[in-house]
Design a protein around this nucleic acid. Sequence first.
DNA 1: CGAGCGATTCGC
DNA 2: CGAATCGCTCGG
Length: 200
Amino acid sequence: MIDYKQYIPAASYLRDPFAFAQEELLGAYLCSNIGKRFCAGKITELEVYLGHCDKACHAYPDKKTKRTEVMFRQGGCAYVYFVYGMYNQFNVVVGKEGEANAILIRSLEPIAGIDIMRERRHTEKLNNLTTGPGKLCQALGITAKEHNGLELNQPPLWLAKGEGKNDFVSAPRVGIDYAEEYRDKPWRFYLKDSLFISKK
DNA sequence: CGAGCGATTCGC
DNA sequence: CGAATCGCTCGG
């Protein structure tokens, strides 16, 4: 049985973003209890963004605006934003206060509350519920308006520890053609052999 | 089943 | 005015 109350400890969010993403966040559980309905998914795919140097990051070059403000907080809270007029994207803020780093969660394997996910997504197919950053927010009920800036160590939105380290693959990030020399950095990581990946 | 395209709102 | 996307349509 998975213990969804085994929160990822606060100190983990202050580790090197790549080590944290690869060793702890891949395979961890993203959980929501929104509208009195519990859902959880195993994190299978994510991307690292660094505010000080990375042209693909909203906060580059360490630019604090109303939108990017939560990325500058101490690691352990959610950065949720709205794109394309219709979709929300969920990120985990990492690093010390003042560092604007975020990890975009791109894909999950549905674990709990699967019928709720089906209802929210208006589809039956298991592999179309949470395989994409916009899809997983819809499936878990996450919105920028309600959940941006929340601490991830309590309901309604939290992260629970996975079972340990996993084999993963590195790849270029998706949808950031404008990011010049940072466009091709292999900062997307996904679980090797997982069927729940947004793009192979 | 893969490529192409339109949808639609907010931040800058 | 363009975006860290998605789902539908169309052609092969």
